[in-house]
Design a binder for these strands. Structure first.
Length: 560
RNA sequence: GCGCCAUUAGCUCAGUGGAUAGAGCAACGGACUUCUAAUCCGUAGGCCCCAGGUUCAAAUCCUGGAUGGCGUACCA
C-alpha cells in the first residue's frame, strides 16, 4: 500500500512542486482509491481547481506505471491497478501473519497504563467494565507497536470508606456469609451502614476512627479485617478478569503507596507551592482558572485521594521514566486529574505533559447514575452470564451440530459485551440496556466473529490447491483490499489517541465488505487460478479480522 | 451560580476544513438444493441543536446561546 502512495506522491511532487502533497480517500470507491484535491493550486496557478485537475491528468499518467489518474471536478482521483494492488497487500499479510499491522516504532519507550482499578469490597459493575476493556485494549495496541507497557491495576483499597467498611463488618459481620458470597455480603453491609449512620452520628465517628487506626499503621484488628477484605475481593475480581482475558503486570492498591505519603507531602511542601487553608494543607490552583485547590491533608491530618495519586505518579516516574502515563478513569474524575496535572505544573516538573487522563463516558442506568451506596448497580458477572446464555441459545438454534458449544457460547457472549463497550468513542456516555448488549446482529462483536468463522470455514474446506493466482479476479474485492491496506495506519492512530473505537469501527467496516463479497463471489470449485486468488483474499481477510479482534480482547472462533 | 464534556436519520452511532453527510437497529419489500441466512440485496428516512463569525470551501475551526450529562475543598 505504502509503495503505491509513494508513487502517487512522487508524481504529484514532480509535476506541481508540492513537497508532500496531502492525499485523501475518495467518498466512493468507484471514483478511485486515493484523491488529490486541487484547491491548493488554485491561487498559484490562477485557475479554477477543475481546470487544474484536467490539465494535470495526462502529465501524471505519464509518470506512473501501476496507477491511473482521472480528473473528476476539482479532484484528481487515482486508481491503483487492481491485480498489482491485490498481490501487494495479500502477499504482505501472508508474510507477516499475526504480525501484520504491527511495527517497532515504540521500541525503547515505556508506557504505563493505569486501568480497571476497582474498589475492594464492591462488586465489579458494568461501569468498571469500561475501564478494564478500554485499558486492556490500549495496552495491547501499544504492545503491537513495540512499546514496552506496564499495566497497573490501581485497586481502590484505601481511604475513609474502608474505615466505614471495617466498622460495618465489626457491627454486622455476623449477619452475613462473608466467605461464601463475599462481595454481595460486603455490599449489603456497606449499604446498611450508610443508611443507618444518617440517623446515628456515632457511626460516622466510629468509621472515622477505624480509618485513622488503619492509616496509623498499627497492625491491630482493624488492619486484620481490612486485609481479609482485600484478599476476598481480589479473588473475586480474578474470576472476572479471567473471563475477560485481562491480566496486569502489577496489582498495586492505593495502600501500596501508603509508606510514601509523608515523603510525597514533604516533596510538594518543599517545592514551595503549598499553603494552609481552613485548617487543611492545599495547593492553590487559581492561576489556572476557576479551579478549586488540591487538598493534600485534611484538617484531621489524614490524606486524600489526590495525595495518594500524587505519591503513585511520583513513584511511577522514578520507577519507569515513562513516555506516557495513561490513566483510564471515568470522565467524572476530570477535575481530579486536571488538579493533579496542575500540581505537577506548579512544581515545574517537565514530564507533566506525559501524564494523560484517558477519560470515558459514564455508564448510566435508566434510573440514573450508578451508585454502589444506593445499591443501584448492574453486576458484570450477571451480564456476562446473560450474554453467554443468549449465545448458547442462538448456537443451539443455528448450528446444533457444533462441537463444544459451551466454550464457544462463552467466547461469543463475552465478546459481544466487550465489543459493545469498545464500539463507540470513549467520551460518549452510555445508557446501559441489556437487550442492546444481547443483540448479535449488525454492528456487534458476534457479527465480526461470524464473519471470521465463515472465512475460516472456507479455508478448512479448500484443502490444498496449487496454482498461480490470477489476481485480476479480485477486482470486485477492491473495498476489502483497501480496508486491509489501511490496517497499520489504524493501529497507529488508535494507539496514539488511546481510542480503541477506531479499531472497532475499522473491523466492522471490513467485516461488512467481506460479507458483501462472500455473498456474491464463490471461492471453491472455480478455475484453479481463480480459486487460489480468492482463497488468498479469504486468508488475508481472516487474518486481519483475527488480528483486530485479538487486539480488542474479543475471541475469534473458527466455528460458531 | 461556575467549570468540564456532549448534541448528526425514529433509536444507537461513523464522518481527516474539501465532491451528492454515511452505517447499524427499528419499518417495509426481496434472496437459503450451492463455501455458516448471527448473512446479503433493495425501499424509505437529514434546518448535521440554534445564531453569528473565519475561509475559495464548515457537520468539522472561533464566539455567543439552548438542551442533556458530569463535577464543583476535607468521598474515591
Amino acid at each position: 500500500m505504502q509503495t503505491f502512495l509513494e508513487e502517487i506522491r512522487a508524481a504529484i511532487a514532480a509535476e506541481t512542486g508540492i513537497e508532500s502533497p496531502k492525499l485523501e480517500t475518495p467518498r466512493d470507491l468507484a471514483m478511485g482509491d486515493v484523491a488529490f484535491p486541487c484547491f491548493v493550486l488554485a491561487k498559484e496557478r490562477k485557475a479554477a481547481p477543475p481546470k487544474i485537475a484536467a490539465e494535470l491528468e495526462a502529465a501524471l499518467n505519464a509518470r506512473m506505471e501501476r496507477v491511473t489518474a482521472k480528473a473528476t471536478g476539482p479532484y484528481l482521483n487515482f486508481t491503483i491497478e487492481r491485480a498489482a494492488f491485490a498481490e501487494t497487500v495479500l502477499t504482505e499479510i501472508a508474510e507477516h501473519g499475526l504480525c501484520y499491522g504491527t511495527s517497532a516504532e515504540g521500541s525503547g519507550q515505556k508506557i504505563v497504563i493505569d486501568f480497571s482499578s476497582p474498589n475492594i469490597a464492591k462488586p465489579m459493575s458494568v461501569g468498571h467494565l469500561r475501564s478494564t476493556v478500554i485499558g486492556a485494549a490500549i495496552q495491547r495496541l501499544h504492545n503491537a507497536l513495540g512499546y514496552e507497557t506496564v499495566g497497573i491495576n490501581h485497586i481502590g483499597d484505601w481511604g475513609s470508606q474502608f474505615g466505614k467498611l471495617v466498622a460495618a463488618v465489626n457491627r454486622y459481620g455476623d449477619t452475613v456469609d462473608l466467605e461464601g458470597e463475599p462481595i454481595p455480603a460486603l455490599l449489603a453491609l456497606y449499604v446498611r451502614y450508610h443508611e443507618e449512620e444518617e440517623g446515628d452520628p456515632s457511626l460516622v465517628e466510629e468509621a472515622r476512627e477505624a480509618f485513622r487506626e488503619l492509616e496509623s499503621g498499627v497492625d491491630g484488628p482493624v488492619r486484620q479485617t481490612w486485609k481479609k477484605l482485600t484478599e476476598l475481593s481480589l479473588e473475586e475480581f480474578g474470576k472476572i478478569y479471567s473471563r475477560l482475558g485481562v491480566s496486569f503486570d502489577l496489582i498495586r492498591g492505593e495502600a501500596f503507596y501508603e509508606p510514601h505519603l509523608d515523603a510525597t507531602v514533604d516533596r510538594v511542601v518543599e517545592s514551595g507551592v503549598t499553603e494552609e487553608s481552613e485548617g487543611a494543607l492545599v495547593v492553590d490552583l487559581s492561576s489556572f482558572g476557576k479551579i478549586p485547590p488540591c487538598l493534600l491533608r485534611k484538617t484531621d491530618g489524614t490524606t486524600l485521594y489526590a495525595t495518594r495519586d500524587l505519591a503513585a505518579v511520583f513513584h511511577r516516574w522514578e520507577e519507569f521514566g515513562f513516555t506516557r502515563a495513561l490513566y483510564v478513569v471515568g470522565g467524572d474524575q476530570r477535575l481530579h486529574f486536571r488538579q493533579l496535572k496542575h500540581v505537577l505544573e506548579r512544581m515545574e516538573l517537565d514530564w507533566e505533559p506525559r501524564v494523560e487522563h484517558v477519560d470515558f463516558g459514564m455508564m448510566r442506568l435508566p434510573e440514573g447514575k450508578m451508585s454502589t451506596r444506593k445499591g443501584r448497580v448492574v453486576f458484570l458477572d450477571d451480564v456476562l452470564d446473560a450474554a453467554a446464555a443468549e449465545a448458547a441459545k442462538v448456537i443451539a438454534e443455528k448450528n446444533p451440530e457444533l462441537a463444544d458449544q459451551a466454550t464457544i457460547a462463552e467466547t461469543v457472549g463475552v465478546g459481544a459485551v466487550v465489543f459493545n463497550d469498545l464500539k463507540r468513542e470513549r467520551v460518549k456516555d452510555i445508557d446501559f440496556r441489556l437487550e442492546e448488549v444481547l443483540s448479535f446482529e449488525g454492528d456487534t462483536g458476534p457479527y465480526v466473529q461470524y464473519t471470521h468463522a465463515r472465512l475460516a470455514s472456507i479455508e478448512r474446506k479448500a484443502g490444498s490447491i496449487d496454482a498461480a493466482p490470477d489476481w485480476s479476479v479480485l477486482e470486485s474485492a477492491a473495498g476489502i483490499l483497501g480496508q486491509m491496506g489501511r490496517f497499520p495506519d489504524v493501529l497507529r492512530s488508535a494507539a496514539r489517541n488511546a481510542e480503541p473505537s477506531e479499531l472497532t469501527t475499522f473491523v466492522l467496516a471490513l467485516a461488512r465488505e467481506v460479507n458483501s463479497w462472500v455473498a456474491k463471489e464463490r471461492v471453491l470449485g472455480q478455475e484453479p487460478a481463480v480459486t487460489t486468488a480468492r482463497l488468498a483474499l479469504v486468508r488475508g481477510a481472516r487474518q486481519v479480522i483475527g488480528n483486530s479482534l485479538a487486539l480488542l480482547g474479543v475471541g475469534a472462533p473458527a466455528e460458531m
